[in-house]
Each structure stands twice: as structure tokens, then as C-alpha cells.
Design a protein around this nucleic acid. Sequence first.
DNA 1: AAAAAAG
Length: 579
Amino acid sequence: MSAPPGASQAPSRNRRRPRRPQQQHPAAPSLAARIAPLSTAATPTSELPTPEPESTDNAKYLSNAKFADFYARGVLTKALFERIPFEYCTEVQEKTFLPIIEGKDVFGQAKTGTGKTIAFLVPAIEQLARRPVPPPEVISILVIAPTRELCLQIEKEAKMLFAGSVYRTQSVIGGVNIKVQRRDLLNERSDVLIATPGRLVDHIENSNLGPRLKTVQTFVMDEADRLLDEGFQKSLIQIANQVTPKDRRQTLLFSATVDNKIRDIARVVLKDKHEFITTISDADEATHQHVHQDYIVTSLAKEDAVMLTLIRRAARTPFPKIIVFYSTARGAAIAYDLFKGIPDFQDLPMFEIHSRLSQGARIKQADAFKTALKGVLFSSDVTARGMDFPNITAVYQVGSPSSPEQYIHRLGRTARAGAEGYGVLILADFEANVLLNKKEMRELPLKPHPEAQHLTDESSDEFKSAKEMVVQTYDAMDSVAKAQAYQAFMGYYNGFQKAFRWSKEDLVRTANHYALDVLRYRSPDGSNNPPPLLPKTVGMMGLKGVVGLNIVRPQPDAQQGYGGGRSSAPPPKKRQRAA
DNA sequence: AAAAAAG
């Protein structure tokens, strides 16, 4: 590895420790870590960042234990040990290895970004390696996680641990061809199966996977707090009914938060005699307590210009890598459309990810952003939890998140494993107080942005130029995405009516303002009407008879964008660039 | 209709 320009000052210890963990402290500014652990892509030398001295902070989640110690004590077999590309264990890993290898049930509390995946995969696989190789139809380890991308991330690590062995891992997620999965399940080993709940149930019902789940020895529920959400419950019950019963399997449950709801579930799925492991001590402040966080309250109409200014400023720093969260998939999509169309950001790659993209596009975007040295990802809450994008310098959030918890999870994409990070929350005036007055929010070190005044000052040149750029770009954009964003906005804020003490008319007025003045939606007929909604949509939102809505009869040749009557199937967006 | 997740 030849030293890039500027690397000569790098402390030599950075390079002398090839086995220092990378994923565990992604922002460790060692060269190797900067190039991203999952990357195989060649990086132009000229783009390599200047390494900074290693911060002691980055070692925060590391323990003094080494994987080599576990190997020396006979805890890890040679083959597995050799496939672990890290030298030091993280704290969670050190604590979970022995109990899991001994076959105990574990309730683990650990934030993501602390090496949690390795903490359960390595010991589970170690157990597997100690037994005779099972017949090919056996699924020894079943992992359930709440998003597709998280499953793929886990699968990647399992593949690494299985490299060159007879064992195989497969993922079973929605959005990809089910027949291919069915065939692979039939023809190839799946010693570790990693699944989202919905698709796993689909396979139970339609691929006769149920009986094979009875061969599961270790059952892992990752991001368990999220898996307990309403929408997952039915699937989880079906899965629990098929998988090996709890007294004859090992269950590992991981959750970032531990509240009564989780404890109740733990009681149901874990054996009475399980081990509780936590790495969150009083001394070790939670990430969200140490990350620098600012908020800006402004009008809806100024949000985009403020965001543009923030990105512009960040673009002048060496390696900006930012995630911008929006509350709706359509909101993230239109923000991506807006900012990718702005000429200032030629050198700053833009990415988008949300449920309205095809799964193929989602995977491409996530992979590209993971390995990117800089860029901005416009995201819905798909990536809010557990996703590991290396070296995120800042997380911006636009609009009230659905809960303080969600705010904290999103923020956790930056400052991973003790690294530096920064958060900005942009709120519209009508939503600010309700969120900021919540107890959980008040307990955060979240402060007014020191430059809030200037950033939102209509008479400043910086604001004026940003606003002008936003207006121009929206004006040039097609109306379909705007109509979709309008509908999503209405649907999202519909849930806040009570909290905001809004009447239905207030909701409609605000949504119309959003479409007409913010997005600059113009009806194809040249009128000043807001985007059309189907009677059915209006009915489902409980807005029948509210003035200001543009209700249209369903048309047989309907342009989609205002209903179309589909439920959850994501109409794949055609536009896609490989970034 | 509103993150996500089955189509």
C-alpha cells in the first residue's frame, strides 16, 4: 500500500496493526478504515483522505480481549478464528462468546455499531463447527431482522465467517424473486438463514419451509424492539409456531432498548434461565448523549433552502458523508430529486433509499453509499436502525420523527462506536414544540443551532441564493412525484392532528401549502388546485367533506400519483443511476 | 393514506 499524498504524517501504528477492528470503529481515521471495510472497489489515490491521529475515543467499545486469546483458550476453532479480520474484541463480543458457545439463552442489550452481529454469529457458528456437519437441509441458525438491508448486512458477515468452508448462508427477504429463493433453499445449504418476517412466513406457507425450521438450534432476534412493532406481530407468531420450541433451542434476543414490552417478550421466547448481557453502563454514556446536536425551527417553506445551505457548507469540508432522514418514503424521494438536480453538488454524489424503490435499486444505493468516501443519502426510516454505513459525519433530520426513539436511532447512524458525529434536526414551526417538549427529547444535549438565525434569514445572500436554486429546481420537476409527496405528507401528519390540536381543515391547509408553495406543484390543467386525491383515499384519511381538497373520480387510465388503489406493492421507480 | 414488511 503506497502512501497517498498527505499520509506521511500518519502515525505508523495505524499501519502496523492490520488486524485492528475496522467495523467496530468505523470512523477510526486509519486509512484502511476510511476506505470502508466492505469495499473491494479501487479508490483513486488522489481522493484518499488525510489520516488523522487515532483518537482514543474510538477504542471505546473495544475490550482488552483479543480473538487470539479465545483461540488460545480453545474457545474458537482455528478455521473460524482465522476468518475474523479483527484483532481486538468489542465489549459485547467478549461478554457473549462464552455463554452463547455454552448454549445458553442470551438477552443482549447493545447498541448497533458495537460489533453486535459478530457477537452472535461467531459463537453460534463456533457451536456449529464443533458438531458433525449436518445434512444439507438443516437450518442450524435462524436470524430474524426487521429490514431487508439489515439482513443483507448480516448475511455478508456470515459469508465472511463461512468463506472456504462447507457451510453456507442464505437470506430470505422480500422484494426479490421468491422462486429463486425457493430454488436456492432446496438446492443449497442454508446453515445460517437470515430473514425478514414477511418473506419467511411466505416460505413457510408456500415453500414448505415449516418442517425445516424444526431443525433450528439457535434462533436469533435482532433489533427485537423493532420486531415487536404492530406490523410484525402476526408474522412473528407464525414463525414462533414453526421454529423449534424454546426448551429445545437456543434463543438470542438483541435489543438496543430494554423496556417492559421487551421484557415481556423475553419472558415468552427465552428460557427462564437466560443470561442478561449489557454493555451500557452508567459510565458509558449512550451515543445520543455525547453527540453534538442542533435544531433549527423554521417555516415549511424555508426547510429546503436551509437544508441546501447545510449541504453546501458540508460540501466544503474534506469528506462529508451525510444521511438526511425524512418521515415518508415519498418525502425522501422528492428531496433526492431536488438535490441531485442542483448544479453546486457535481462533486458530491447523491443517493436515495426508501421503500418506494425496487429492492434491486435499494441494494445498489446502500452498497454504493457504504463504500462512498463522501456523499449524501436521502433516506426514509429504512436505514434508521442497525444499518452500518462507515464514517457518517452528520445526520440531518427534516420534519418531526415519529417518536423520540426514532430520532435517537437515526442519530445513531453517525458517531458509531464512539467516533465523532453531528446531528441537525430541522422542524417546521407547527411541529417543533410538540416534539421538543417531550421528556425524552429534553434529556438530550439538543440545542438551538448557533446559526439558526442566519440560516433562516430571508435577507441574507446565502439564504436567497439557496432559495432561488430550490425554486428553480422544483419548477423544473415533474408533477407526479410532487403529488405523491403531497399525499404522503397528508397521511403522515394526519397522525399528528391531536398532538398539534389541528382541525382537519388545518391539516388540509398545511398540506396544500406544502404542495403549492413548497413543492410548487402546478396542476396539468393550469388551475391552482392542489394535487388530486381519490375519494377512497380521502375516505381512508377521514377527510371526507373537508374544504380545499381536490377530489377526482377514479379514471380507468389513471395517471398514478394520486392513489391508483395499490396497497403496499412498491411500484419500482425507473430512474436509477449507479451513483 | 402514514417507516417497515408479502404481493
